[in-house]
Design a protein around this nucleic acid. Structure first.
Lengths: 140, 140
DNA sequence: ATAACTGCAAATCTTTTGCTTACAG
DNA sequence: CTGTAAGCAAAAGATTTGCAGTTAT
């Protein structure tokens, strides 16, 4: 299953994962998917994300990479961008040291407007942005 | 309800919130709580957190403060610490600028071992830490 | 009168569990 | 044998929705 997660470009929720896993092995069960996800989480091979709750209560999974990614979720178009920043590591170190907290896992997510959507909106609709953007974002 | 959230020291999930809200107004319904939370989210008066999924699939709510807090969740004792760091703001600015992404909301959570738990564990149990810590954290 | 809000009950969706069988060491 | 993994079906938990009755504007 970890392969299925790895070869997926984006972020998968359990249902999609089940679907894909079934293409390989037709009679796999939901329970197996969830149990495997649980296992992979414990082994720290995958990350569990919420992507700013754009899509409600679902959890998403991705294979862990060497550098921690920041996830940017666009409230308007629903797209998820993954970016990195050297400052992120410094921040982790600082937080860890200042609070004597051994960080084993971090998650940094931001929600807002992606470049394309800001551009598309133009400069005159701060109001619309405030009122409507969170209401019905497209699904990713 | 925002008051109930504000006066609560910690982070409340919907169920607890309902319970507390009922102390004020006995026949409040779940639906009202969820609908109000939805509203407060849209108005950006509250944050919705997952606290590293320590407690499964629940969402937690807290009144928004002026500075963004970092949430540290201890995998062992389940305690949540809130800390701030000036670097966090710099990181936000950097990410926003480098990706032309208008950040409207950020969430930074970390999971690991709090000071007390690291101390309690001593220095000899890296193994136990690896294998057992995620299994059954106490509830907060 | 009209729009927004609420309770209530039922539905939905996601995730978890108990039980039983299959399988590997 | 003996413990681990898997399917299946059912349960559980959290959140959402439709509807009808109220309240506020």
């Amino acid at each position: 299953m970890i392969e299925t997660i790895q070869e997926a470009a984006g972020h998968l929720d359990a249902a999609t994962l089940l679907e894909r896993a079934r293409k390989r092995d037709a009679q796999i069960d939901r329970a197996t998917v969830y149990r495997t996800l649980e296992l992979l989480k414990k082994l720290r091979l995958i990350n569990e994300l919420d992507l700013m709750h754009l899509t409600g209560r679902k959890h998403f999974y991705e294979a862990k990479t060497t550098v921690d990614q920041v996830h940017l979720a666009c409230f308007q178009c629903g797209r998820i961008e993954e970016v990195t920043s050297p400052l992120f590591d410094r921040l982790k170190t600082e937080i860890s040291r200042q609070n004597s907290f051994q960080i084993r896992e971090v998650r940094l997510e931001a929600g807002g407007l992606c470049k394309a959507c800001s551009a598309r909106n133009g400069k005159t609709d701060g109001i619309r942005e405030k009122a409507g953007a969170l209401v019905a974002p497209n699904r990713q």
